[in-house]
Simulated scan of single mutants.
Amino acid sequence: MPRLPRLASAATAALALGVIAAAPAAGHEPPVTDPHIVAHFDLAAGQTPENIALEGDGSADLTLALARQVTHVALDGSTRVLATLPAERNPDTPLLHSAVVTGIARAHDGTLYVNYATGTAKTGVWRIPGDGGTPVQIAKLPPDGLPNGLALDERRNVLYAADSVRGMVWRVPRSGGTATAWATGASLRPLPAPPAVGLGANGIKVHRDAVWVSNTDRETLLRLPVRPDGGAGPAETRATGLGGIDDFAFPGRGSTVLAALNRSSQVVLVRRDGTRTVVLTGRDGLSNPTSVAVRGRNVYVPGAALLTRRDPNLLLARLRYPSGRL
């Protein structure tokens, strides 16, 4: 999630940053096709799509950061609020100054987990029943941090939360309990703000015995191996120059990544060697994309519109090639 600009009527927050020079596409056929918007949201109501988890039928669960909501988007584009995080009378979230719900992860049994940042004791990881209901806080995180991306490792029964302000990754038992610092270091930390935004570790995914993390300020994509004892191995930089990178997804089993570049309203395909191709832009309907999800050949991209101020939405597109080729 990027830093949010303030609205005249309420504090807002945004994520975001510079535009990258992307490598030209290999060949003549675009790797992502048929972009179209499947759901629109209300910016004035704080419905700013931040992160996404997919259901088994291809429908989607989204966090709406400033509305403090988790909403379900059905296959026909209709929406239903699953849960609203409890209000905080005096939020003091670092950088944002608003209470925001950020990362989301879904277990195979349907249970949802979200990060909630308030600058108070409510900051932490919360659990929501898969069919909706009352959120329950299962782990506290420091109120002076900003838990952002969230990933679930069901094999190890742990959650990983990227803290953008503290510049680190927390590990939380899936059943709840005490959060522990899993990964720290300069590669995860933000740069001084100003001139930078002050957002370090942001998006996060578990992929093939490693935790991958984006760093917004440093414009990087990192891979942190998970050691046999569950600890974090040394961070490996897998891509650089990704200005405004937010969250990302793997379209296949390999190391190719689809990354959301918030400020430039782009999605880029980042290959194993670090080269990249712009595959979606504002002309396709992107409006400050915040995350990406992939199911089969379907690509989902939420956009919060916190900088464009136009049409927060959920965009759907298609991979031209089967995921096994990526």
Rank of each mutant, 00 (worst) to 15 (best):
R310T: 15
M168Y: 10
A239R: 02
T277S: 15
L54F: 09
V32D: 00
P49I: 02
P173E: 11
N262A: 13
L319I: 04
V19D: 12
V267Q: 01
A11K: 06
A44V: 05
R127G: 02
A16E: 10
G103M: 05
P49L: 03
V292E: 05
P30T: 07
L82G: 11
H36K: 14
V213E: 01
G244I: 01
Q69R: 12
L306V: 12
G241S: 11
G124F: 09
L159T: 05
L7C: 07
A65Y: 03
T93S: 13
R318F: 02
T277R: 15
A151T: 04
Q69E: 13
S175W: 10
L43E: 12
T220S: 11
D34A: 14
G254C: 09
G282M: 07
A235G: 12
G244E: 00
T134A: 14
D273G: 03
G282K: 13
G243R: 00
R253A: 15
A249E: 13
R310A: 15
G176K: 14
L17I: 08
P234M: 03
A183D: 11
R263T: 10
H97A: 09
G285V: 00
G27K: 09
M1I: 11
L258R: 04
L191V: 06
V169P: 07
L159W: 01
N51C: 06
V172S: 10
A181R: 15
T240Y: 08
V278G: 05
Y113L: 11
I52C: 08
D131E: 15
A60P: 02
L314F: 02
H72D: 08
A305Y: 07
R155M: 09
K122C: 06
L64A: 06
S287D: 13
Q47N: 06
D284K: 07
R318L: 03
G185Q: 13
G231Y: 03
T84P: 12
L64C: 07
D217A: 10
G46T: 05
P135C: 11
P322Q: 08
T120V: 06
L319D: 01
R297T: 15
P24Y: 14
T71S: 07
D131G: 14
V213Y: 00
R297N: 13
S9E: 15
D57P: 00
D153T: 04
L62G: 01
D131A: 15
S265L: 00
G324N: 08
L316Y: 01
A74H: 13
D229Y: 10
N148T: 14
T12I: 08
R166E: 09
A162C: 06
D92M: 12
S287C: 12
T33Y: 09
D153C: 04
A14N: 10
D284W: 03
D131H: 13
L15R: 11
L7P: 02
L286M: 06
P86M: 12
T216D: 12
A107E: 08
A44L: 10
M168A: 14
T123L: 11
R171P: 01
L150A: 03
I128C: 14
L222W: 03
A210F: 07
